[in-house]
Amino acid sequence: MVRIIGFFVGLAFVGMVFISFFVNIADYVANPPEETAEHEFHKHPKEVHFASDGPFGHFDNQQLQRGFQVYKEVCAACHGLTLVSFRDLAALGYEEPEIKAIADQWAIQVPSVNADTGEAATRKAIPADRFPSPYPNEVAARAANNNALPPDLSLIAKAREGGAAYTYSLLTGYQRQPAELVHKFPAAKTPQGLYYNPYFPNLNLAMPPPLTAEGQVTYADGTRASVDQMAKDVSAFLVWTAEPKLQNRRTAGFAVVIFLLIGTILGYLAYRQIWAEAKRKVRVTGPLEAESQAKAQAAKDDQGVAG
């Protein structure tokens, strides 16, 4: 009974999915999907190497400090870093007084309450504060940016396919829209107020090119601040903001993996030892059981006939 019901249920599903299949195919043949500009012109992130890549990678604190400087002087005007605290900068090699000064002089102040009047006010940041958001709320952010919302950058390296390579490619990928694209897809012409960037999923983004000229920031360590360098540095910095415990994780990982490797090998040897005993206890002596012997004989005859 179960099999009969099952058979018909099976037929129903299989039949239905085949109907869908043929309708789908017919539709595909009748109206082949049109090429889209996104599909044809979107580029995967560039190949770029960061010091923190790979299982043995380490953050380059010099680079992270430079990246922080780029964030502070270029990105921070529009993009928040609200999951990161000033005190976290200690991991980049900043000393406590430096962190205090950075927090104190941060261009955006922290929302607070006027102690005398109770009205909304702002105060200077302290190391325990998170980086204050450049906008009080989403409406303000959109209003200030032509209705586009600048995303918070704290997790951007983990929240985008491609991670740091994506941010680097995006920052260095602005270009004129290819004439070929406009020719082929007139509707996909970059609208007024947007900027063409083939690394952005839908090719046009609202952010104007943020890194435009060499020397836009002046690095304290004397590194030449080319656009490429700045993009790389800030991308490296954003890897850190997304995963500040990266190095702790890998260090712990090596210890754990080595420990487990030794333990597993020991466990395997102990297992072999224990089972060796079981294998010794049951040994093959004498002829096969009568039934099996007959079977073996029959098979031999069988083969003899076949051969």
Binding site: R280, K281, V282, R283, V284, T285, G286, P287, L288, E289, Q293, A296, A299, K300, Q303
Partner: peptide, 17 residues
Amino acid sequence: MATEAQSAEGSGNIHVD
């Protein structure tokens, strides 16, 4: 074939030692 392996070395009874 398998049968050969069986008859060559495997023709044994089971003995719990």
